[in-house]
Nucleic acid binder design. Structure first.
Lengths: 123, 123
DNA sequence: GTTCCCCTTTACGTTAACGTAAAGGATAAA
DNA sequence: TTTATCCTTTACGTTAACGTAAAGGGGAAC
């Protein structure tokens, strides 16, 4: 990270998050992130970094890139958008929440099973 | 489900879980499940059904089929197996647990963000 | 001035997880 | 006995998420 400008190169972020520059470029191809440019070089700011974090968190949870794009696009909506649009987003949020609740349940179940497995293995 | 024999056909299970027979056959190709046969027909019993549930739960959490196979194989290990093998499994269990804890964190964070998003949208 | 290192784009390759079509066997209903 | 409805296997197709290689630009170090 460049301390003067508070910016990052693509490999700065790649190293920090343990991924490849190729992945980051791929996220850009998929419209998940759009850094500034200095000529042809990509320049990432704090906001881009946070966005990348959000992408990777979504991935860990198991969301696809297009699902993540959907979530990100909700962030980008203006606060008091169109009525229809707002309703649409609220429904999307509900959907996401339901999926996440289901996942929480699944994880709890799986953790309990791991406990039983471990107990069996250690007598 | 056949009430006499307490067995299921492949499409019975497919319908119940909202997937296709093809998927179930694929899980069999990948050694995740291995039903009995009556001639060439697959016959699924309670145990197979539970196994399928486990597979689908793993999928919802975001595990790959080979990760799920790894988990399933832990179930199949005898209780008092070899020393080395047991240690290996215990480490695997720890890994899984860590990943699941991370996911729990990620989900909490994401849920909180959804709350803030919703609040913003509804003023 | 050339070597090095990082960046770029273009483009074809790869893997996972199935989808889909083709061709045929078995059983039950009409 | 034909028609329908399941089942089977084989095999090629598809999509997502990158990997990887090729070819080249730009600046710093020697």
């Amino acid at each position: 990270m460049n301390d003067k400008t508070n910016t990052y190169s693509i490999s700065d972020l790649a190293k920090e998050f343990g991924i490849t520059p190729r992945s980051i470029r791929h996220y850009e191809d998929e419209k998940l992130i759009s850094p500034e440019r200095n000529g042809s070089q990509r320049i990432y700011r704090k906001g881009d970094r946070i966005r990348l974090q959000l992408i990777l968190r979504g991935k860990r949870i198991g969301f696809s890139l297009s699902e993540i794009r959907e979530i990100i696009s909700m962030y980008d909506e203006p606060s008091g958008g169109e009525e229809k649009q707002t309703e649409f987003l609220l429904r999307k949020i509900e959907e996401r929440r339901d999926a996440l609740y289901q996942q929480q349940q699944d994880i709890k179940t799986m953790l309990a099973e791991l406990d039983r497995l471990e107990a069996r293995l250690t007598q």
